[in-house]
Each structure stands twice: as C-alpha cells, then as structure tokens.
Amino acid sequence: MRHLVFLLLLSSVCFFALSEVVGNNFKECKEFFLDTAPPDFTPPAGVSVKPICQCIWDDNDKKMYLYATLYSTTWKIPVYSAYVFYESKSIGRCDPWYIEPQLDGDSEPCMRPKGYGSNIGTNQAVNSDYEKSGYDKGHLYPVLHTDNHLSMLATSTLTNAAPQNPDFNRKTWLEHERAVTEDLESCDEAAYVVTGVVPDTKTIPNKKVTVSKYYWRATCCLKNNQYTGKGYYGPDNNGKVEESTIKDLQDKLNGFYQIQKIQIFPRIPPLNKPAKIAKTTYTCN
C-alpha cells in the first residue's frame, strides 16, 4: 500500500436495485450524508473513481435512491458506501447479485441483472470474477443494517462488495455488524454510517478485482443531545475487529493509505441548543 497516495476527507459529521453514476458529485443522494455533505476523495494517479447513487425501480416505476457509493473502476471495488441507519428490521435475504450497466457505457441509470448490456465487466466486477476465487462478496452496506425490502435488494450490487476472506466475513465481521446494530438502535434518531475498504496490493485469481486488505466503519449518532462517534477496522493482527475512537481510526487509515491526513467528521451540524451548551456536546471526532 506504500504506493497509494490519496486524500480522503469525509465532509460529514457522522460519517463515513439500482445505482446511478452522477458525474463528480452525489447531487441525487446527498441525504445519505449528514448535513448533505458527501466525502471529498482524491485518488492516486491512474486510479479512476465514480460516485454512484444506488437506486432501484419500485413497483410504480419510480426510481428509489437507497444509499451512496464511491466506486473505483480501476480496483473494481468500492472505496466506501455511505448510508443512513434506521432501526433495523428482520428482512429476508435474497442475493440476486446486480451490476451497473452505466459504468460500462449503457444508458440504463439503475442496476440490472448479470448479462445486461454488451460490454459489462470492463469497468466493474461481475459474478464470474468471484467464482472459485476463494473469496466472499463482502458487503459494505450490509443486509443486517437495512429496514425494508428495497434496501435489502439494493445491497446486493457488486459495486457494494469487495473480495473478503470467507472466515472473517461470516464470523468476525458479521458479529461486528450485529454489535453495531445494537449500538445504533440506541440512538435518539437515525444514524449516519460509512463503511470503507482498504485495497490490498494483490488481486483475486483473475488478476482483475483487487482484494480488500482491511474493512473499516465509522458511525455517528445523536444520543442524549450529544453526537457520539465510533470507529472500527479489521481484521487486526489477531483476525478481529478493533473498536476505536474516530481519531484513532483516522490515524490507522493514515498509515494504511500512506497519506498525511484523513479527517472523517470535519463538520458538526448545530444542535437545537444554545451555543454554550452545544460546544460541549460534540464528540464525533
């Protein structure tokens, strides 16, 4: 990772089917970032990234936006997915993995099943890339954190997944997702979450899709008139997920990415409290 030099400024407080490439911004889905402020990301030279508003057509042919993803068409994995956590519900899981036609030049703005379009796979991963690879498709926005059927379906897009060690994905990271669910359900209102991937220097056997070296997550929510933030990353040296402060997570990411500065929650929106009180209640940093 020493050759990677990039700046990740997550410009929302609590930060950091089917999808729509939206140029250089998230103008159609800024509601998934607290204070409608999406992250700023400057990739290293030669690495292309695309902001995606993840969307799905509902039964009335209405386009529904469900979360946001910054996707690398070079690494063929997401940089991060950002979403709003509401009280999760028991949603039956279905894994009809989708792709994004628009990433490969198709006019369709939302994701479609495998095989849709003529050049699919040029700028993104497809199901066949994972076959016999030894890796799981690891969700960034997990089914466990959804609260409705459409959101559940929308998580199963390959732009929301990266190659993940099966044992870590099915055990340790799953346990972490459950613990985060319990923690965020105690928030006074909806919480804002971003989950990211640190790319490895290797690819899966097809030499196309970059393996995830680390997964990380940042959460923030309002509890008792106080913004509370937590950071997580894994696997650590013992194959576990480590919980940390946001500052410590930023320090870890500085080392992983070999950059000078990452500021995950640079801007805190004002609380509906007197300024004197509000200044003592910001802890998401």
Rank of each mutant, 00 (worst) to 15 (best):
G138N: 00
V194T: 15
P142Y: 00
L140Y: 08
P142I: 00
P205H: 05
T172I: 02
F168K: 06
V209S: 01
A190I: 12
P163T: 11
P163L: 06
A218S: 09
H176M: 06
K223I: 07
T201F: 10
V209G: 05
Y227V: 05
E175I: 01
D147F: 12
N127Q: 13
P199I: 08
K223L: 04
I204A: 06
K208Q: 04
D183R: 14
K132A: 12
T195Y: 11
L174R: 09
P166R: 10
A191C: 14
L222F: 04
V211L: 09
H145W: 13
Y227D: 00
Y135G: 13
K208G: 00
L150M: 04
L150C: 09
T157N: 09
E185Y: 00
H149G: 03
I204M: 06
E177D: 00
R217W: 00
R178M: 03
V198F: 03
E175T: 13
T172C: 01
T146W: 05
H176N: 13
H176L: 04
D183N: 07
P142A: 13
L140V: 15
E182H: 07
K208R: 05
L174D: 08
V180A: 02
D188H: 10
S156K: 11
T159A: 08
P199T: 14
E131K: 14
V180Q: 04
K208W: 02
V194H: 11
D200H: 15
T195A: 12
V198P: 05
A162N: 12
D136I: 07
L184V: 03
L222S: 10
